[in-house]
């Protein structure tokens, strides 16, 4: 499976293009990936270019509350086998895009980036389309991964908060479900 293909012509900029040269206002700027609609870019309907930042997957996961909560306080090497398995399952979720959340995993080792990356759907920037000419092309996220990334971006940003049942009610429902499952297994 190939995650990305080489991308050298900035005039071919489209959704899923991985580019450098966006000024995020940081001392060292991250690389970016284009979220703008491919048709808008193709037919020059885009007034602005929408991009998201890419960060090393290891830094995102390794710094996360979830990772620290499932590993030994001295890190992965000191963790038990059960903890290590839990971490590996978490990594599999990202590699296979099993869940939709804030990040989308991309293996960029075949490109100049040569790293395993995460798109951060919370770090987004919109810039005048003229900036296109000053960007440096790096790679193109392949189809259907780029469509999948967009589906996850849309799903992530369109989540609707709903009321949750109380913990007590949740436990009542769980107990009833388990009773029924046990009955079903007989």
């Amino acid at each position: 499976m190939e995650w990305t293909t080489p991308f050298n012509d900035i005039n071919q900029l489209t959704q899923g293009s991985i580019i450098d040269g966006i000024n995020w206002g940081d001392e060292d700027n991250p690389v970016s990936i284009v979220l703008s609609n491919a048709c808008d870019l193709e037919h020059e309907h885009a007034s602005y270019l929408i991009v998201a930042a890419l960060y090393p997957a290891s830094a995102i996961i390794g710094n996360s509350r979830e990772y620290k909560g499932m590993t030994h306080q001295n890190g992965f090497s000191a963790s038990s086998k059960k903890q290590k398995n839990a971490v590996e399952n978490k990594l599999s979720d990202y590699i296979h895009h099993r869940t939709i959340n804030r990040y989308y995993f991309i293996d960029c080792t075949a490109s100049d980036l040569d790293m395993l990356m995460m798109v951060d759907f919370q770090r987004i920037l919109s810039l005048p389309i003229d900036i296109k000419n000053s960007l440096r092309p790096i790679a193109q996220l392949n189809t259907p991964l780029k469509e999948q990334m967009m589906m996850q971006f849309v799903s992530y940003t369109s989540r609707i908060p709903t009321d949750r049942v109380s913990q007590e009610d949740e436990q009542v429902i769980k107990n009833k479900l388990l009773e029924e499952i046990i009955e079903f297994e007989k």
């Binding site: 996360s64 509350r65 099993r98």
Partner: peptide, 16 residues
Amino acid sequence: KAAYRNRSLGESILIE
């Protein structure tokens, strides 16, 4: 570090 250390990876919606 301020943006990512000890931050949640986010609510997950299982799709597969």
